[in-house]
Amino acid sequence: MADRPKTPDRPLKIALVEESPVRAAILEEGLREAGHATILRISDRANLLERIYAIDPDVILIGLANPSRDVLEQMFQMSRSVRRPVGMFVDQSDSSSIEAAIDAGVSAYVVDGLKKERVKPILDTMVSRFNAFSRLKAELDQAKSQLEERKVVDRAKGILMRQKGIGEEQAYALLRTVAMNEKKKISEIAQAVVTAAELLK
């Protein structure tokens, strides 16, 4: 990016270990926007170490919940790895940044000796992108469950209208009253109505 000051250091090579293509795309885009061009994505769990050796990255980014973390940590023990990566947690001086990373679900391994100032912006980018992805996913899940709930409520209303010969507003009021009395959500009562109707068919 033209408006960024040029750093004298050579560009960092970043390996991104991520199985979900959607999340990988979001993370990759964020890193590119931050001016990192050399990003290699590893989506396959097999031959992870061989890929890492071949790429020889400066920084490895991987989700905390990714089972391949244990495989990566084997690299710390191997003598044939010339450039030994270390966990981001080795430098414990910057605990707020570590906590932000953990909360977001990010972990990073960097080659020993790499300056902290060069890694921190990468980690910050990852944290905000991971958080953005989680928000997006939560919103999608919520929208989906709201849609499901509305469908169930509509079905329950239809059943009540038919069975009791009442109007739509009365059917909804009935669901709401029962929900309030039983201290439950309207969708839960609606689900009970639908289930009962299925059983009595």
């Binding site: 905390l64 990714n66 990566l72 947690f89 953990i102």
Partner: peptide, 13 residues
Amino acid sequence: EISWSNIRDRLTL
């Protein structure tokens, strides 16, 4: 938990 790395980090933190 899914990995020993993760369980270790979540305990230490």
